[in-house]
Design a protein around this nucleic acid. Structure first.
Lengths: 238, 238
DNA sequence: GCTTGACCTTGCCCCAGGGGCAACGTTCGA
DNA sequence: TCGAACGTTGCCCCTGGGGCAAGGTCAAGC
């Protein structure tokens, strides 16, 4: 007859776990010897190994309990199900591993592939990393606030970037961030921007009156501006 | 600016989880709007996705917290470690799957390969499944109570089974379980057993005076006897 | 016989990672 | 204007045990 420690060692668990299984009704309480120690027999060892096998496979103890005295068909079905579950979990772990690797480089992890591609295009255009981050943050907010609009807006942005004049303006605005607010190039840039805006026929998509988006855009800009940008904004409005 | 629900949906978690991360200090509490609602920006979304990526990889939240503002080297090292861990867990799951499959057939799962082989030999000899179970339970107890003795005893048992007379006696004892206690074959079997025992030179191993084992054996037998076996035992002793 | 160390007993609180519910305030669209 | 859907805090609950306390017990060696 075995003590709780011997039984636990045999099954590769702690004595604590064995007592836990008693509490949860998974393992029958054995008889006690004269000193009150639990004394186990081989049947307990068999059951304990079964419990561990099922629990190691990720089955909750409550289900293990039901299953221990279920008929063979139920048992087999449960085994099959758990087996499927294990395969799913392996796949999940593989995915987690891949995600983890992404964490080290780039922002593909944080935005949809569509947006990530767009950001890469900006980079190829020579846009500063600061500006790319600003864009990324804007798209994250948009994606979170109204995901169904993202595709349309991305398409619109792409359409604009196809216009050489817009591309030039975009890059100059980007560069202007670091200029002095008194930089003589600012009035000229403002003028060119207004000219472009006047000649530019706003598309359907752009006129979408989504107040959420409008407020969102305003906030995003507000967070990260510079003296030169502030002046530029005033010059364009005036 | 996002509400907690939008942020949570974006990262694929529950609002409860987001609040949990605030409590644990993983995610900075954002400002509140006039009604007391939390209002999040893109930075929160970035951090939240990072948190989930690390947590999904099995990292405890406490470590995630430390890692979120660690230097890149520490971060990379931690990533590598977690990656190793994931691979280990995948291997573990695979093992669990294999064990699970074993659960459906035989008792290889419960005893060492050595003992399982021995039990299979008994089966080939035509020993009843009842007797094989009895043996199995005995070996489980021995393995749990004093694993270092198992190999020696198994070898001894094998040596005995090589003796044709012992094999015959073993099988007849097995069969006698179901006999009536008045069966006329019992006295003859007892006599043959005594003759064999007298002519049998007990080996070194057999005389090992392990009182634990002796008590153990006695208990095992006591649990599963039959009227015929009881009579047989009395006949042999007398 | 005595000590020492390893074992056993019960009981209680602790952890992650949230879920669920209460009881209430806010916002938004029809 | 009203109801649904969302937000707030706070509390207790779950799993699968770990850790520790405050003892009782057992076997070995001296």
């Amino acid at each position: 007859m075995l003590t709780i420690g011997q039984l636990a060692d045999y099954a590769g668990v702690t004595t604590k776990a064995v007592r836990h299984y008693h509490e949860r009704g998974l393992l029958a309480e054995p008889g006690r010897d004269s000193s009150g120690y639990r004394r186990y027999d081989a049947q307990h060892a068999l059951t304990l190994v079964k419990i561990r096998t099922l629990a190691d496979a990720g089955m909750p103890l409550a289900r293990v309990k039901d299953l221990l005295d279920a008929d063979p068909d139920t048992f087999a079905a449960a085994i099959a199900e758990i087996d499927q579950d294990i395969r799913k979990r392996i796949a999940q772990l593989r995915r987690a591993r891949a995600q983890l690797a992404q964490l080290r480089g780039g922002d593909r992890l944080f935005v949809s592939p569509e947006i990530a591609d767009y950001l890469d295009e900006l980079r190829e255009l020579g846009v500063s990393e600061r500006q790319v981050c600003l864009e990324r943050d804007g798209w994250i907010l948009m994606h979170a606030a109204s995901p169904e609009d993202v595709s349309r807006w991305i398409a619109e942005k792409r359409r604009l970037l196809a216009d050489p004049e817009f591309r030039t303006l975009y890059r100059e605005h980007d560069a202007a961030y670091d200029w002095s607010p008194d930089d003589p190039r600012l009035p000229a840039l403002a003028e060119r921007t207004r000219t472009w805006a006047a000649g530019h026929h706003p598309s359907e998509a752009e006129r979408v009156d989504n107040p959420t988006i409008a407020r969102l855009a305003a906030r995003t800009q507000a967070g990260a501006s510079s003296p030169a940008w502030d002046r530029l904004a005033r010059l364009i409005k005036s």
